[in-house]
Write a protein that binds this DNA or RNA. Structure first.
Lengths: 193, 193
DNA sequence: ATTATATATATAAACATTTATATATATAAT
DNA sequence: ATTATATATATAAATGTTTATATATATAAT
C-alpha cells in the first residue's frame, strides 16, 4: 500500500485537505500511482487514528468545512523509514499482455487492429510524458526543492523509458504478426507467378 | 478483470482443474498476470454459474475429488470477443516510483543503496526472461500451437523490452544521483586544492 | 439560460486481491 | 527420520480499489 506513503510524502511538504492531496496526485505522481477521493478520505482518517497525522477543521460558510491534515513527527519518521526500505520486486500486472497471449484466437486483421490501437495509445501517453518533461525542464525549481526536483524528474524519465519500450515493442510485434505464415483466417498467397 | 479471461484462455486449450490452471499461470503468464488459488477457485465457481464453464467431478480415493472445468460455447465466444476488444490504457501502478519521488528525504548513500538493490532485482528478473526466451526458442512448438506460440513469444519479448528499460533507467538514475550537488547529508568536498 | 467545472467531504456497495487457515496423503530430497 | 514439495479444494478475514450516490455552492464557459 503506497497510498499511505504518497499521502505522507505530500503532507511532508505542506498541510493540506484531502481534496488538495488529490490534486497533487493528479498533477505529479498520477502516471505511476493514482487514487480516488473515496480512497483518500478514509485513508486520511485512519492515518490520523494511527497518529501519523493530525487534523484541524477550518470552518467555512456555505461550503463543507475544510479538514486540513498535518504530518506528525511519527508520520515523518514513518515516511523516512519507508523511502529507505528495500522491497521485493512487485509483480507486473498488464492486462494487455493477457490479451496478446491468447490472440491466436483472432484472425490476422483483427489482431493487427487491436495492436495498432494499442500503439496509438502508447504513443499518446509517451508524447504527454515528453511534453511534461519539457515543461519540467523550463521551470527552475525553488532553492528548497532543487534536491527534490531531481527525484521528481527521475520518475518522469522512468515513464519515458517504459513508454518508449512499449511503443517499440508494439511496433516490432506488428511487424512479426504481419510476417506470420497465413495458416488461419487468410489466403495463402503465392508470389512466384 | 483479466483473471476470468486468462482462465477462459487456458481452458480453451484443454479441460482442467483449478490446481492445474494455477500451474499454467505460474509457468506462462506469471510475469504479467498472476493469481492465487484462493482467487481462482471462487472465480471458476462463478464462471460456471454464468454459463461460461461446465464442471465435472472426477472421483478420487484418499484425496479431494478433482473438479474438472470445461469451456462452453458461450465461454469460447466471450473469450474471442474479449481478445478482439480495444481497451483504454490501464494506469500504471509502480510503488517503487512513489519511493523515488520522495527520495530526497534520504541521504545520498541510503538513496544509492535503495537504487542499487532495485537494479539487482531488475537484472535478475531480466536474466530470467532471457533464459526463458532461450528455452522457448529451442523447443519447436507442435504444429497445432505454431500460431499460438508466436503470440506467447511476443509477451516474453515485452518482458525483455520493459525489463531492459527498467535496468537502463536505474543505471542512469544512479549516475544522476551520484552527480547531484552535495547539499544535504554529506561533505561539500572541494577539488581544487 | 444552461451546462460544465471547481470546491469540499462522506459513505455504501461492489469488485479484486492477498493472507491465513483447514484438511489429507504421496513422494522426493536431505 | 525429517522436511519439503506436490496433489487437490475450500473458506474466512483482511486489504485495496473503483463506482455510485449524496449534499451544496460558486464561477466560468457556451
Amino acid at each position: 500500500m503506497s497510498l499511505k506513503y504518497a499521502l505522507l510524502g505530500f503532507l511532508n511538504y505542506a498541510d493540506m485537505t484531502g481534496y488538495e492531496l488529490k490534486q497533487h496526485f493528479d498533477s505529479s505522481i498520477q502516471h505511476f500511482w493514482n487514487a480516488k477521493l473515496s480512497q483518500i478520505y478514509p485513508a486520511l482518517s485512519q492515518m490520523e487514528k494511527d497518529g501519523l497525522l493530525v487534523m484541524e477543521v477550518e470552518y467555512q460558510e456555505q461550503r463543507p468545512n475544510r479538514k486540513v491534515y498535518k504530518i506528525t513527527a511519527a508520520g515523518r519518521q514513518e515516511l523516512k523509514r519507508w523511502v529507505g526500505t528495500t522491497m521485493e520486486l512487485q509483480s507486473v500486472r498488464e492486462a494487455f499482455l493477457v490479451q496478446v497471449f491468447f490472440m491466436a484466437q483472432l484472425d490476422r486483421e483483427s489482431a493487427l487492429g487491436v495492436m495498432r490501437h494499442q500503439l496509438e495509445q502508447y504513443r499518446k501517453r509517451l508524447e504527454n510524458y515528453h511534453l511534461f518533461k519539457k515543461s519540467f525542464s523550463e521551470v527552475v525549481p525553488a532553492e528548497v526543492f532543487k534536491e527534490d526536483a531531481v527525484f521528481w524528474e527521475l520518475t518522469l524519465d522512468a515513464g519515458i523509458k517504459y513508454g518508449t519500450a512499449a511503443v517499440e515493442w508494439v511496433e516490432e510485434a506488428i511487424e512479426k504478426i504481419k510476417g506470420m505464415e497465413r495458416v488461419k483466417g487468410g489466403l495463402e498467397v503465392s508470389h512466384d507467378g
